[in-house]
Structures are given as C-alpha cells and as structure tokens.
Design a protein around this nucleic acid. Structure first.
Lengths: 77, 77
DNA sequence: TATCTGGTCAACAAATTTGTTTACTTTATT
DNA sequence: AATAAAGTAAACAAATTTGTTGACCAGATA
C-alpha cells in the first residue's frame, strides 16, 4: 500500500471526526444521516477511510460541508 | 443496485468526459496524469464510475477542478 | 496500403470497501 | 452504584473497485 494513501485515509478519518464534533452529534446520529450503522462511522474515524465517491457525498451532506471542504485537511494538525 | 447510485455513476462518468474534453486532452493523457491505464478512464466515461475518494481527488487535480466542481452535475443535461 | 492515434470492449484476479453481527470499554447521568 | 449512552473492536461474507491484459474499430496520415 501506498504511504500517501495511508496518510489520506488517516486524514479523512480525522476530518470526519472533527466535523462531527463541531456539529455536536454522535457517531450514531451521523450514521443515521447516511443510513449506515454506527460501527461504520467509528471505523472511518478510527481506522481512517477511503470511501467511494457516493458515500463521500453523503458524508459531506450529513456534515453540512461541500466535498472540497471535507477533503481539505490543511487545518488538521 | 440503488437507482440513485446508478444515476450518480452515470453522471460522474459524463462529468469526467466533459471536463476532459474541455481540457482537450485524450483519455491516455488523463490516465497518465493519475498514473493509470487509459482503459480505466474509458471505463469511467463509458460505464460510469464510483471511484474511491482518493482516486476522486487525483481526478479532480488532473482535471484542474476542485472535488465539489467535479461532483457538481447541475450543468449536465 | 500501412501505420498511428484515440476510443471501445471483455475478461479476469486481486485488493478493497461495504454491510452486518456481536461484544466489550468508557463516559455520562440518575 | 446502576443504568444508559457513546465509543471501540474483531470477524466475516458479499459486493464493488482496482489493476491488468489483450483485442478490436474508426479516423487521420505518411
């Protein structure tokens, strides 16, 4: 596996968690918004994620940001 | 097997083709920009696509648009 | 004609994501 | 302390994407 991809996955996981916490919603609530189980969200946040574009869009809608914002990791330490 | 997903895939395929043609580059050139074979791009354009977020980002960079623009199908008839 | 470019198609294994279940730990609340 | 809510974890099949190969077709061109 590519190191860049691993970094990407990690960053996206962090970003999802960050945005979710800014919204003050639980993993369960975010999961509900995209019609998935809470374990799926947890997996994204903990293990990192490289979801399909379709799920990415659902996530961006559920998190009230556009895809570009969701994929912008620049303010992640 | 979801109808929405099928529509999404089709739209993304159309969008990739549209943006590629606006750039006046071949499938081979676009493929080269994301380090894939030309058949991959052709498959996206013809069959539609639901690539992973990582590949989506590579595509958006190669097509000189941000992810949101790449995923905006509103000007697709 | 022969060749090259660009595009299309099918098949296949390999890798990855997705969806689901079960269960455990931690944190908050009463 | 007890209960509920939130978060974490592992395992697994199923579905899908990815990567690759080989081939074919149409149009332009030398």
């Amino acid at each position: 596996m590519d190191a860049k991809l691993i970094e990407f996955r990690k960053n996206l996981g962090r970003r999802i968690k960050q945005l979710r916490e800014q919204l003050n919603i639980t993993q369960l609530e975010l999961a509900a918004r995209i019609n998935k189980d809470k374990q799926v969200i947890n997996r994204y946040e903990i293990e990192g994620a490289n979801p399909t574009a379709y799920i990415l869009m659902a996530l961006s809608r559920a998190l009230n940001v556009d895809p570009t914002t969701l994929l912008d990791f620049s303010d992640l330490k």
